[in-house]
Design a protein around this nucleic acid. Structure first.
Lengths: 331, 331
DNA sequence: CTGAAAGCGCTTACAG
DNA sequence: CTGAAAGCGCTTACAG
């Protein structure tokens, strides 16, 4: 049987009210003598606060729920770290829930778990909510924010790397290296993919290069997408001289498959990625990449979510750097 | 203001008791007519159950907390997936908490969060609890289990890959390829590292090879450990012909550094890893590795934790396969 | 400085 | 089939 403040009260001949005050350090509302007794009793009894009761009566919670899409979470670690850093410094607790990839039911379950606990806020990481689940989330009245979100739903605040710029600058980087036939691979049809494609197109146009739709191979940011795209684009006669992968995994899939086809990177083919997690640094050849500020996204997301001045928050598009690895070359 | 069952009761002219029964499908305790009214009202009001209240009154919880060490979690994904699979099929909720690497304070905070919520069970993934925190956990009376645990504390149930066998079989694999000078790199001084070392030594002895303490370079399963070890072991004149890394990251660090020193893998040096996550498959050369059954560890851990027949559970040592990649060769 | 009391939202014997 | 009542563990005005 777990000890309660009632047990402590009995043991110390104080009221539960006083015990409660002491345990919560409501300084000025108790004598030092009582405090000593209470703390001793609490220790003796192995007292554990019951958070359910506390939250029930105070109608508030000190926990933030983070819902993470389980699949394309190559970069989730960094976002998680950023979130944790902020939570730690603010004395908040964070619980993480995994929502399967695009599985509306599992997503819903994760939302229910968070919402029924009346968490103080919800962070969605890389998850795409369908209409029903979004309604449910909004109707819960719980503040939320979306990080690296595939779509930018109206009325939701989100923070994500500027996908248009990701596409634009990666393409421009390659153009400046002399490439003219550049493929864009593995991006999906969400805002992420389409924004990147717009950037890609604009960069070409800006540099007076023509757009060839055959060089666009959509996908889902997977390793397999990279493999298939290389087969498709480089099998017969390599038509392209450079490839941009939608994720690090896609880029690695491309490089591996190119190698299997007898094409060397970067000698025969230059490859870039649009994520830039540590995978790009430990792989060989190291992979030239736009480096998304995932850690910073996590930090800002958390800060923004919990900042009290709830003047309507602004969505943010983050900037980024480009890391030049060994996977690209001048031609 | 969030709607409560009281609001529903008022609106439907029923008592909260009846509303509660209907919402919980206590079949037989209410009329269909009332049920319809209640469900309609709940919907109209956007009713959300308050889990805090439910858990407070029922003194029970349907959530399992998983506490994960944040650092060496190259393999945590697979364990998490395994845990989720089981949770989903049993209708349980799982919340994840990250405990910093060997940071007793953060660990403690994670424990507090879980324990004060009276979760139904706690799974520890790759975390090393210090004495104080272990006491705290045990005293909470909440069932727990440790997965891939560095140490095997007395009185705790744990599931981990058989580290002795990991060391033994990897070493034997290399011996059978003709290697006699084999280094063991990046393992720590916990049970994990020492068990592996025992296996390594026994394999040598079994095959009449002498043990050279210079070939043991301890560490913390990091990429850097691999880099440093290769510098130390291969810089002057390569004394070893094969290296076993304590983790995939260590193995990759070794391969990269060997390459930087002008040593080709596997031509000049064979390299193995003792984890075997997907990293070993996507890296080039693909890395020969013992493949720990992380997913299965997650599944079993969860199953065992929640299985009611609480006859004292047994700790388990899991077996594994060896994946032969391109990073090793016969000499 | 302390206590009695109300109440957070819910469940569940008990009585009808 | 339904309701009144007690109670889960805690906090906090209110009164002293």
């Amino acid at each position: 049987m777990k000890a309660t403040i009632k047990d402590i009260a009995k043991r110390t001949n104080l009221s539960v009210a006083t015990v409660s005050r002491i345990l919560n350090n409501k300084t000025g509302f108790y004598s030092e003598k009582s405090a000593v007794k209470v703390h001793q009793a609490a220790k003796d009894l192995g007292y554990q606060k019951n958070t359910n009761a506390v939250e029930l009566v105070t109608q508030s919670s000190k926990v933030v729920a983070v819902i993470i899409s389980s699949a394309k979470t190559n970069f989730a670690d960094q976002i998680i770290d950023g979130i944790q850093e902020v939570a730690l410094s603010k004395g908040l607790n964070v619980i993480f829930l995994y929502a399967g990839e695009d599985d509306a039911d599992i997503q819903y379950k994760a939302l229910v778990t968070a919402i029924e606990r009346s968490v103080m806020g919800i962070v969605m990481v890389a998850v795409e909510l369908n209409g029903h689940n979004l309604d449910y989330l909004q109707q819960s009245q719980i503040p939320y924010i979306m990080l690296s979100t595939p779509h930018s739903p109206k009325g939701s605040v989100y923070i994500t790397t500027d996908n248009y710029q990701l596409g634009y600058r990666a393409t421009e980087f390659l153009i400046e290296k002399g490439h003219e036939k550049i493929a864009l691979v593995g991006n999906d049809l969400s805002d992420i993919g389409t924004d990147r494609l717009r950037g890609y197109k604009d960069a070409l146009e800006q540099h007076n290069l023509s757009f060839n739709p055959d060089f666009i191979v959509t996908g889902n940011f997977t390793y397999e997408d990279g493999v298939l795209a290389v087969n498709q684009l480089c099998q017969a006669k390599p038509q392209v001289t450079a490839l941009i992968g939608g994720s690090d995994m896609t880029a690695i899939g491309m490089i591996n498959q190119a190698r299997d086809l007898g094409l060397a990177v970067p000698d025969n083919l230059s490859v870039m990625s649009l994520d830039g997690t540590k995978l790009t640094k430990i792989y060989r050849p190291s992979i030239t990449s736009t480096v998304q500020p995932f850690n910073e996204i996590g930090k800002r997301g958390m800060q923004q979510l919990i900042s009290e001045k709830s003047g309507p928050h602004q969505s943010q598009l983050m900037t980024f750097n480009i890391y030049e690895g060994e996977s690209t070359r001048k031609i």
